[in-house]
Design a binder for these strands. Structure first.
Lengths: 230, 230, 230, 230
DNA sequence: AATGAATGAGCCTTCATTCAT
DNA sequence: CATGAATGAAGGCTCATTCAT
């Protein structure tokens, strides 16, 4: 990783932990209201007057804290991508994992999946805004793309290669392995949250079965050789 | 499938083939311009005057053909979901496949994937609009949800069960198998089109390797037992 | 009356009887629809497209018969004033009445009132349009004003003077007598039609009692001298 | 009068006196401009942009004070009916008059007529708007109808009955007496203001002669019995 | 810092009118 | 005569943003 990147990383980590430079209580109320409304109607269809009303502040107050409406959006949607990637930003992330001698790849996936799933649930509205506005806000797009290409992909590559060396993961380009795994989890979350938001299911069980599919695929496998986890 | 559904199916199939009741040449120009602009800036941020200008018609002309701006959106974004699901609407879809005695599940996946991938490329902008507006247009949401739950899921379930009986697919809830497979392909397409639109890759090869992952998972498998496809 | 006026009178009488130059059946349907809608929402708030729809013709057809929307209004609202004044246009109107030796003024008022009241009922919507648009259409205003000043007032003046000479009507400027009498009847009709459209009353009786007030006023009068009519 | 009505009365009286909740100077300019233009071209044909221009404010400013154009109309035309009826709203109106032992009915009529005539002259444009829009704005219609039925008619009935008992007014339904008297005055005002706005006449004399007609009617009356007032 | 009245550009939509068919 | 697609000006209204208080 270049020195450039090192500096960027530091900034990102501060962002990931930072309190988002929210200073006054009114500003907090504005942000909260904006999240609610942007998420509900989309950025373009949301009006600053509605946000002001919901936040219980005067319209002018919004523009005291954020120069434009888009500024407000960026200040809300920008950091969430960083936070989503936060675990991968930790300096020790890869090394810690790689040092654990008996760690199973499957266990790692489970840990990450559960952690990020919880994150998604906790920040659903914010992520919704981010996903929706990414195509229309080049800033967001570039920032997020870079984040995942430079940080997440890089870190995960090391780990995947590590497990490939240990013989736990097949030989295939790490990016394809990452993409596939991520897609499956995203698909799982998406289905849960969007198609059947009210259904009550055993999530741990669901994750376990999904891990089965990730690890062994759809094709039946010879008995006893690759015992399924409980 | 209920009789109700039968009727609905017929309507959908007509929609799937229909020329979208576009009658005049000006109307076609309006639709084309609208697709372009909706896709580019999103529905809410698009202006009818811009659409009119791009279409080379007077603004009033739009409203002669579509009662409201939202009407225009629905008439554009509504049918695309049906078309996306079109192959699954064909009466013979399942039966045809199930009758082929030696058909491999993997071959089926490949066929569907290639076909739909082509479709996505051909109608990228339209699908972009659909995906973006679904959360804000209850009509689109319900229609699309029903389409996939009632048609696509139902048809694919039959097929998956069929291959499960033939021992080509592990015993797992068909919906989870469908979800996983679909997610992986969607992830592949998404990555291709969004993250690396310009990169030049051997798509057939990519599909094949992705099928490997779908069929056998990440875990290394005993030699010779499940030979990889060519 | 000047020669000028004589010519005008002739034209007016033709108008008063004329079939309004309505030639085709579609035109008739347009006029009918226009009356309905102008009366209901007012001229400015009525739209030609609504009229066309109600008439069952194409929008263009309206403009084949009437150059503009205002043209349509004038062709509808213009003649109704003339028709309202029609009885006073008849050449023989005054002379006929004046020749009847034993005619009572009260009987004359009764006759006119009943006749015009019926006319109002028969052409309520048209009169509504006329009254509403008079202030905004100078043509209508001038035409109507002239009609009443030159024709109605003139004719009634002769008659009132005649009855003054016969001692049946007090000495007072004829215009004031006409204005008062007309106002009372208009007030009666207005109250009937606007404030209590559904109430069921004995109209003949009402007219008679109103004539009492016109003839003898509010002040109680000595017995036997001016016997009230039954 | 019911308690319900008592409460309503209070509200109305506040309205009748109230400064119409006009707070800023710009709002006052908007109202003034709106009165001018509504009166001139009618509500439907008036445009908010024209009003804004005449008021010297931005068009948006109008909509900050009044949610819709119709809102502006109602806020202008609504109160004027109440103000027109204001004298009849005063709690002491009837009692005061009835207590004056030697009061003549004719004097009462004269007082009211002069007062209201002045009011009409002072608020001509507003009344014009009210009269024109009443048929198209159900709110105005109902409010005004109720006002006159519940307040004006009720109060005047008491008074008329009082004078009937004193023998100054003939026995006839009070509502008919009111209607007739009101019609005559309205006709007088209407003629003055609409047909001959520029003519210069002795108004006091005109009122007096009109009162003659109201009190004694058109029929000549025996000498000396009911001496005409000067 | 906070307010909220004021702005004016721009939005979606309607409308009277025209014209080729 | 009749049609109805097309027009483009104008309408009512919303909105992000500014600024004096």
């Amino acid at each position: 990783m270049s020195e450039q990147n090192e500096k960027w990383l530091k900034e990102l980590m501060m962002l990931a932990e930072g309190s988002d430079h929210i200073k006054t209580e009114k500003q907090a109320r504005i942000v909260e209201a904006a999240i609610e409304i942007f998420s509900e109607k989309g950025f373009a269809a949301a009006s600053t007057s509605e946000i002001a009303q919901k936040a219980g502040v005067a319209e002018g107050t919004i523009f005291r804290h954020y120069k434009t409406k888009k500024d407000l959006l960026i200040s809300i949607a920008g950091p969430i991508a960083v936070k989503m990637a936060a675990p991968f930003l930790m300096r020790e992330f890869a090394s810690k994992i790689l040092d654990l001698p008996h760690e199973q790849f499957r266990d790692l996936l489970r840990t990450i999946a559960k952690d990020r799933l919880q994150f998604v649930r906790d920040h659903f509205k914010l992520l919704r805004i981010l996903i929706h506005e990414i195509p229309f806000q080049p800033e967001l797009l570039e920032q997020t793309k870079a984040l995942f290409k430079e940080i997440v992909l890089k870190r995960m590559e090391e780990i995947i290669i590590h497990f490939q060396k240990k013989g736990q993961v097949i030989e295939a380009p790490p990016w394809r392995i990452l993409r596939t795994t991520a897609s499956i989890f995203i698909g799982m979350v998406g289905t849960r949250l969007l198609l059947m938001p009210d259904e009550d299911i055993d999530e741990d069980e669901e994750i376990e079965r999904t891990l089965d599919l990730i690890m062994y695929g759809l094709s039946p496998h010879p008995k006893e050789e690759q015992p399924r986890s409980t």
